[in-house]
């Protein structure tokens, strides 16, 4: 029942997107997010949509995987949409009782909803095509210079990769504990909110106990292999750019340029 969560879950496939250097994908995602919030004209959104569809097709990841992340923010979308639709002043185009829809309201609501949907789909595209390890490697490399400012870059990257690695483990563990308690007659579905919250105790307590146990085991195993932080640590597979990555950078920059030109026009 918990296998549905795709956040931070890698989808194995052999595509150009999967083979790209994680730094390129991080950079691309950053540009994509900026562009999403810079763009306001329909033509810009048309370009973004075309780019997004192209990348989705290249990625070979089933589309349903990207939309799964959306189910969690449906409420947020609806509320943001409604508020923008009815609360924005402008020229009324539709009135029903106290409710008025204005031209700007309609435009704002559409822009807001499209931005959020594209944000989720686009960023999940990155996590679906990049393994957590690549992702943190990429982050660590790109933020390397920040360590001169006293930012513990390696430690943050390590914490991130461990946290990401633990998501599926904890999901599996939760599933196991839930089943074990269901075998003892636990009922998680019926009853009011208080009863259902109480029913979570038999899951949460063992889950926390096991999370602490796993964390301490992992710390021990890392120390046993002489882990001492990032100082002087080398990589087994250092990140290197290929011709493909250079082309990808170029494509991203052209994309950014097109959007800027469209915004200025």
């Amino acid at each position: 029942m918990f296998r549905e969560i795709t956040l931070g879950q890698y989808y194995p496939a052999d595509s150009i997107l999967h083979r790209l250097d994680p730094r390129v994908k991080l950079f691309g995602t950053l540009i994509y997010i900026i562009v999403l919030f810079v763009a306001s004209e329909p033509i810009s959104f048309g370009v973004i949509t075309a780019a997004l569809v192209a990348v989705i097709l290249i990625s070979k990841v089933p589309f349903s995987y990207m939309t799964k992340g959306l189910s969690g923010i449906v409420m947020l979308l609806v509320i943001a949409g409604i508020f923008n639709l009815f609360m924005t002043p402008g020229i009324p185009i539709f009135t029903w009782g106290p409710l008025t829809i204005t031209d700007i309201g309609l435009k704002n609501a559409a822009t807001m909803v499209i931005r959020m949907v594209y944000l989720i789909v686009g960023t999940s595209l990155m996590t679906l095509t990049t393994t957590p390890n690549q992702l943190t490697d990429g982050l660590e490399r790109s933020m390397r210079h920040m360590s001169k400012l006293g930012l513990p870059v390696h430690e943050i990257a390590m914490m991130m990769s461990i946290a990401l690695r633990f998501i599926p483990i904890l999901v599996e563990e939760t599933d196991k504990i839930m089943k074990a308690q269901m075998a003892r007659g636990a009922d998680f579905e019926s009853g009011g909110i208080i009863k259902r919250t109480k029913a979570m105790v038999p899951i949460l307590v063992p889950l926390f106990v096991s999370a602490f146990r796993r964390a301490s085991d992992l710390a021990m195993a890392m120390e046993a292999r002489c882990y001492h932080g990032g100082e002087g640590r080398t990589k087994m597979k250092p990140l290197t750019y290929t011709a493909l990555d250079r082309v990808a950078y170029l494509v991203i920059l052209v994309f950014l340029a097109v959007i800027i030109v469209l915004a200025l026009m």
Binding site: K179, M182, R184, G185, P202, S210
Partner: peptide, 14 residues
Amino acid sequence: RTRVGMVFQYPEHQ
């Protein structure tokens, strides 16, 4: 589930 009792692997984790 109460008539077919199930002891999982490492049941102490529950």
